[in-house]
Write a protein that binds this DNA or RNA. Structure first.
Lengths: 155, 155
DNA sequence: CCGTATCCATTCCGATACTG
DNA sequence: CAGTATCGGAATGGATACGG
């Protein structure tokens, strides 16, 4: 009865997203996947997470269609976890979290890893939200249009 | 011993970000704050979360400088929770999660709330990641430049 | 090397009752 | 209305041990 409230059927897309990646590990796994990691052991070593929960999270991400299982590219008999198109769609979220952390969570001069462009080696520019007319978009420029709330939906 | 691994000192900005907002509720609270909610009861009703956890999360977000306590704008004697500049910096993350959910988590024709521009009432355009030269940026165009890993840091 | 299975401590979460 | 206090069940997370 005290189980986590499922947001799978929420009327808010953000809530549904968080139902899948809204935990401590999933987005870190996805980060590492963007970083080229594919093998169980790579994730395990990178994250320092217990193997049982790593297995659990990977399974869930595969189930949700964020990761896909593919035969190993090298000779080994195991499978690899690769991002699906759906998974790659999380790239802006990953980059957004990274940029926010860079901007607000480090002391001045404190070093951290950086996402850079492959060719130039220079940092990826900050995300710029734009309106339809191309102007910068601030939170105040927007609001959420909710559902008509027919019966008892979208509480 | 089985306590959540703190990522506060991680060398990856994304990890630090998740240390603050990487749970089920924080980003939903922030979403509602962007949506104009300020009062304890508003969050409580919107999220349907137990009051003790809501209080805990709000306290933590205030402590982390994402929300700020301000005297009530109306006559009431209670305080209000408002986004700080740091908190508003999460807007791209919120929008990114929303867009990802819209694109991948709904059946065709299934209704959901939409983030729209205040003036036109039209949906906010999708986030476009760009390289420094203005071209579209894909995950493959990037890599993470990690720290030199001096001693035993950035494990 | 890739997981699965088990044990145990801690944390999370929901429901409820309670104070001011 | 805005929280705090408490309780119990569920999930999380770490540390192994074990099998393919």
């Amino acid at each position: 009865m005290a189980q986590r409230k499922s947001l799978k059927n929420d009327a808010c897309p953000m809530a549904r997203s968080l139902d899948i990646v809204g935990d401590q590990w999933s987005l870190l796994i996805i980060r590492d996947a963007f970083d080229g990691m594919k093998r169980f052991g790579e994730f395990q070593q990178s994250l320092g997470v217990a193997k049982n929960i790593l297995a659990d999270r990977l399974k869930n991400l595969v189930h949700e269609g964020v990761l896909d299982l593919a035969p190993a590219s090298d000779g080994s008999l195991y499978q690899e976890y690769v991002l699906t198109a759906k998974g790659k769609g999380l790239f802006p979220v990953v980059v957004g979290l990274r940029h926010w952390g860079e901007a607000h969570l480090y002391a001045k001069g404190e070093p951290h890893s950086v996402l850079v462009e492959r060719e130039s080696g220079k940092p990826v520019p900050k995300i710029a939200l734009r309106m339809r007319d191309g102007q910068a978009l601030t939170p105040e420029d927007t609001f959420v249009k909710k559902l008509p709330a027919k019966k008892a939906a979208a509480h």
